[in-house]
């Protein structure tokens, strides 16, 4: 008989039994061992219907198609750039994906577009079985970054940083007037009207990182930003 052995939002360690029986399905971070669904990670459980998954509390960033990443160019080659994306795997940016314009590799210097150590906001457009990563700069919001601040947070905490439908990052944007891009690989770009605002946003982000696994976080972030308490029950 199928039985759930855990509830949502529990901290579990690898190997722990989450559910027994064939009626439940293992999601990300969980795996099936015969009749038993076990945790494959140190993380927090999440049960949605029959799906039991474990949300990681740590770990490196592993690229997935569609992710927005902030990368640093670490090699310039004849027709592509190698970009470091805070992951065990390096990404490749091909000229065709680098710009909406045509880049003639024979006539132009590759470093005119992206030089060593330059930073880009890019999107992962392909991940193959060998973990060759292709990224693109063709799309809205994708560009080379020239100013502002970049901070590094634990990639596992990025979803909390963004919040439901981007609520958390919107809160910080409103509270500080900064332009913020949260990339899936744990790098966050902050560009504000002045240093003080940027620092305020930075501290709010550190707060979220430290307390990502706790409840009532939004309220504390509001408080930190000096914003009035949210009215409950309003539209």
């Amino acid at each position: 008989m199928s039985e759930l052995k855990t509830q949502s939002r529990q901290v579990v360690v690898p190997g722990e039994t989450l559910a027994t029986g064939l009626d439940y399905l293992p999601g990300n971070g969980a795996y099936r061992d015969g009749e038993i669904i076990r945790s494959g990670l140190l993380g927090i459980t999440s049960v949605a219907g029959q799906l039991v998954k474990v949300i990681p509390l740590g770990g490196r960033y592993i690229p997935m198609e569609g992710d927005i990443v902030i990368g640093i160019v670490d090699e310039v080659r004849f027709s592509n750039w190698s970009v470091e994306i805070n992951s065990p795997y390096k990404a490749q940016l091909k000229v065709a994906d680098a710009s909406n314009r045509f880049i003639d590799t024979r006539r132009s210097d590759m470093t005119d577009f992206f030089d060593l150590d330059e930073t880009v906001i890019a999107q992962v457009i392909g991940v193959d079985n060998n973990m060759n990563i292709n990224i693109s700069l063709r799309g809205p919001g994708l560009m080379k970054i020239k100013d502002g601040k970049i901070i590094l947070v634990n990639p596992a905490k990025v979803p909390r940083m963004i919040g439901k439908n981007g609520s958390m990052v919107r809160l910080i944007k409103e509270g500080t007037g900064c332009n913020i891009t949260v990339a899936q690989n744990g790098r966050i770009w902050i560009k504000g009207p002045n240093k003080d605002k940027e620092n305020l946003a930075l501290k709010a982000i550190k707060l979220i990182e430290d307390e990502a696994h706790t409840a009532g976080l939004t309220e504390r972030v509001r408080e930190h930003l000096g914003m009035p308490k949210e009215k409950t029950g309003g539209a």
């Binding site: 360690v13 690898p14 190997g15 076990r38 494959g40 740590g58 596992a156």
Partner: peptide, 11 residues
């Protein structure tokens, strides 16, 4: 290993 967030079968 678990602390590093590495996927494992068991402890």
């Amino acid at each position: 290993l678990a602390d590093a967030g590495i996927p494992m079968r068991d402890m």
